[in-house]
């Protein structure tokens, strides 16, 4: 029996061995979405009230491209002085600093490209590429991407598509390789950069009837999502504390306190769909309010956090 039996069943044994390798390589690979413990979400935020621990939960922050678009649509002007200097890129050697600055440079890239700043777009794409390579994100931004960008600098829609695709490449690579925590840090970096640019552009202007200031205050809604996303990644696969995430949560504590001073209230919504365009308009009213002093504090806190990220 032994030899004959072995030869006869060799394919099955090989399949068995191969499957074991595959399974061991992918154990716990469902980190891109997580089962959520309901006790983690006892908050005052109504939308999170019914969170179901049995379901897969995704939290979505504005991407760098969306962040830049939000700033621009609120009437921002382009100011390259506000962006993180490319020369800083060589300073980032830790996983956390590279992840934060991948987000920061991608927001800067998006901001530059939305204002048709072609040369700046190339420089910031290079900086983002350097961060991605440092994080071992394979081929997120390759030579073909750079060439395509250079050939299409006059076509903003193509440039935006390239930025969107490179960010999708990075985030999908991280999430599918058990590096959900790094993906979260990238998003936080990009989001803080948008907040920084917006707060600097508001400067000392009055915040009354100021669309950009309103946009900043509305970020309190996204900050709730930042907190939950980071909380979800406080432990690594082995249940050990994730030091990068814990540090980041501590760094954002002042921002939490600053946003606590901001009041955001939303009325009930009504959805109305146009018969012609088939586009639905969600009708509601959101009130945001803060004292000028607390807005100043918020600006200062954002400045401090961003400075700590790019050091």
């Amino acid at each position: 029996m032994p030899e004959k039996y072995f030869v006869k069943h060799l394919p099955v044994l090989l399949l068995f061995a191969f499957s074991l390798v595959i399974i061991s390589c992918n154990s716990g690979k469902k980190k891109s979405v997580k089962d959520v413990n309901i006790e983690d979400f006892v908050t005052e935020d109504d939308i999170f009230d019914d969170i179901d621990k049995a379901k897969k939960i995704f939290y979505s922050l504005p991407s760098p491209l969306e962040t830049a678009m939000l700033i621009k649509s609120a009437g921002a002007e382009y100011d390259e002085e506000l962006l993180n200097d490319i020369s800083n890129s060589s300073k980032y050697t830790t996983n956390k600093s590279m992840a934060l600055n991948l987000g920061i440079y991608t927001t800067d890239l998006s901001f530059a490209s939305l204002f048709d700043q072609t040369q700046a777009s190339i420089r910031y794409m290079e900086a983002a590429r350097k961060m991605a390579e440092g994080l071992d994100i394979n081929d997120a931004i390759d030579n073909a991407t750079m060439t395509r960008l250079e050939e299409n600098l006059q076509h903003r829609d193509v440039v935006m598509d390239i930025i969107s695709e490179t960010f999708l490449n990075s985030s999908s690579y991280l999430k599918e390789n058990d590096r959900q925590d790094v993906a979260a840090v990238v998003l936080v970096g990009g989001w803080i950069e948008g907040l920084y640019i917006a707060t600097k552009l508001v400067g000392n202007s009055s915040i009354k009837n100021n669309e950009l200031a309103d946009r900043i205050l509305e970020q309190k809604l996204s900050f709730n999502i930042v907190q939950r996303m980071l909380d979800d990644n406080q432990e690594n696969e082995e249940g050990e504390p994730n030091q990068d995430i814990l540090e980041l949560i501590a760094q954002l504590q002042d921002l939490k306190e600053a946003f606590d001073k901001v009041k955001v209230t939303t009325t009930e919504s009504q959805a109305v769909t146009s018969q012609d365009s088939k586009v639905t308009t969600i009708k509601s009213n959101t009130e945001v309010s803060v004292t000028p002093e607390d807005f100043k504090k918020l600006q200062l806190v954002v400045d401090n956090i961003r400075t700590s990220f790019i050091q």
């Binding site: 897969k56 939960i57 960010f167």
Partner: peptide, 17 residues
């Protein structure tokens, strides 16, 4: 540019905020 995707099985649900 954001990536939200997962393997789901018939009967499973997911939520996104």
């Amino acid at each position: 540019g954001n990536y939200h995707a997962a393997i789901l099985t018939e009967g499973e649900e997911a939520e996104l905020y």
